[in-house]
Design a protein around this nucleic acid. Structure first.
Lengths: 242, 242
DNA sequence: ACCTTACTGCGTATGCTATACACAGAGGTA
DNA sequence: TACCTCTGTGTATAGCATACGCAGTAAGGT
C-alpha cells in the first residue's frame, strides 16, 4: 500500500486500516495499537469511560504516559478506535432472509453490542463513520436491502435511520435503568411531584396510566415496538417501489 | 411550596423548577441562576461547549469561579440547565392539525432548536428528561397524538422514537458538514481510497451511485425522508388501532 | 566497520480543569 | 446586642492532555 498524503486521511483512520509505511528503521516497538486499545477497553469496562485517561491506560499497559502518543495522535483518536473495537464486527448474516428479518437481527446485534459496552454512547460524535468495523456494520445493513427496489441513497438513509434509533433507544434505556432496578419508579414519583396536571395534562395522563412506570420494566418489548414502527415505515416505502 | 426531601429530587432539578426554600437570611444574592445559565450559553455559542468551564463562565458573569457553586452543585448540573435553556419552550401549536402534521412541525422545531445550539448534542446523556422545557416539549408531542387511539405507553414510545430520530439525524448531519462545505466530498474520497469493493460491495455500490456525496448536499430532503419513514410507521399503527 | 537517520520510550514541564475548604462580611432573627 | 445563616472569595489539591527535548536502538548506506 502506497504512502498516503496526510492531508487527505486523518492519521488515526489510516492507522486503523493498517495503512502506514513501516520503514522499520528504529528500535522495535514494544507495544502495539491493538494492545493499547484493548487496555482502554479494560479500563472503560472496569471503571467507566471517565476513568479512561492517557495516564491510566498507560499504566494498564505498563508503559509511560507519553509512550502512547507514539501510537495515537490524541486521546480523541484513541476513543474512536475504542469505539470501533467495542462494536466489533457484526455477526454473520443468516442466509435466505427477507430485508425485514435481516434488519431486525442487525438492529438487535447493535443493541447487544451497546449493552456490552454502554460507554460507547458517551463518546462524543466526532464525524461520519469511517473505521473498519463501522464500515462492516454499514455493509451488512445495506446488504439486507439489496433485494428491495430502493435507490442507493434511500438504502443509506434507511440504515442510518435504524442505527440511529437503536443507539438513541439504548442510550435512554441505559440512562433510566442505570443506577438501580427501582430507579424508574423513583423517576415516576419525582415527575408526579413536580408536574402540574393543568399545565401538563398529556404528561399527567401518561403518568396516570402508568406509562412511565411500565415503560422500562421490560425494556425489550418497548424496543421492538419502536423497531417495528420504523420497519413498518420502511415497508411502506418498499411497497411503493415495487 | 413545601420543603423537599433532598433524597427524592436531585438538587439541580429542584432548582430548575423553582422549588427551594428561600429563607432570605444572609446577604442578598448578587447573581441568579438564569444569569449563570445564560453566560454558559454565551460561552458555548462563542467558543463551543469545550470552552464552557466553570472559570470561564464565572469570568463571563464577572464573579469568582467558586461563586457559581453557590447556585449549581456541579458542572453537570449547569450543563443540564444549559441544555434545557437551549431547547427553550416549544413553539405554539397550530390549531386544527392532525397528528401527522403536528408531529412534523414538532420534529422540525426540535431540529431548528438543535441547529441553533448544536453543542447540546455533545452534552452527555445523564438521565431521563426532567427539566421544565423538556417536559413541555414532551407534553406538546403527546398532545399531537391525543386524537389517535393509541395507548398511553404507545404515545410515549412514539414521541421518544421521533425525538430520537431528530436528535440522531441532527448529530450526523452536523458532524458531516461541520468543518466546511466540501467536507462531505472529502469524506467520500477518503472512503473510496480505503474501501475494498470485494469486501464491501454494498458500500462501494452506494458510493458509486453517489449516495454518500449527494446525501448531505441539501440536508433537509434527507431529513424529511427519514421523518416520513417514521411517520409512515406510526400511521400504520394508528390505522390498526381504529 | 562506521556513520547517519529515523524511530523508540521516557521525564519533565505547562497550563488547564473541577472542586474541597476555610474565611470574611452581610443581613436577617432573637 | 448577639447570633446564625447564607453570601462571595482566595487558596490549595489532584488530575488532566500534551508540547518538548533527550537518550538509546536498529537498520541503510558507505
Amino acid at each position: 500500500m502506497g504512502k498516503i498524503e496526510e492531508s487527505e486521511i486523518p492519521v488515526g483512520i489510516a492507522v486503523a486500516w493498517g495503512l502506514r509505511d513501516r520503514p522499520g528503521k528504529g528500535p522495535k516497538p514494544a507495544l502495539s495499537l491493538p494492545r493499547i486499545v484493548q487496555a482502554g477497553l479494560d479500563v472503560a469496562r472496569a471503571d467507566g469511560l471517565a476513568a479512561v485517561s492517557m495516564a491510566r491506560v498507560a499504566k494498564e499497559v505498563g508503559v509511560s504516559t507519553m509512550a502512547l502518543y507514539r501510537y495515537v495522535a490524541a486521546k480523541d483518536v484513541l476513543l474512536e478506535l475504542m469505539q470501533d473495537a467495542a462494536y466489533g464486527p457484526p455477526p454473520e448474516a443468516t442466509a435466505d432472509q427477507d430485508w425485514r428479518a435481516g434488519l431486525t437481527e442487525w438492529s438487535w446485534a447493535i443493541l447487544h453490542a451497546i449493552r456490552r459496552h454502554p460507554w460507547v454512547l458517551q463518546i462524543p460524535v466526532s464525524g461520519a463513520p469511517l473505521l473498519p468495523n463501522q464500515i462492516t456494520w454499514l455493509e451488512r445493513g445495506l446488504t439486507c436491502l439489496s433485494g428491495t427496489g430502493l435507490a442507493e441513497s434511500e438504502k443509506l438513509s434507511v440504515v442510518m435511520l435504524l442505527s440511529g434509533y437503536v443507539r438513541q433507544w439504548a442510550g435512554l434505556s441505559i440512562a433510566v435503568g442505570a443506577a438501580g432496578p427501582d430507579q424508574a419508579a423513583r423517576y415516576a414519583k419525582t415527575l408526579a411531584r413536580v408536574i402540574d396536571p393543568v399545565r401538563f395534562p398529556a404528561v399527567s395522563a401518561a403518568m396516570a396510566a402508568g406509562a412511565v412506570n411500565d415503560e422500562w420494566d421490560d425494556g425489550d418489548t418497548e424496543f421492538v415496538f419502536g423497531l417495528d414502527r420504523v420497519l413498518d415505515g420502511i415497508a411502506a416505502l418498499t411497497h411503493a417501489r415495487s
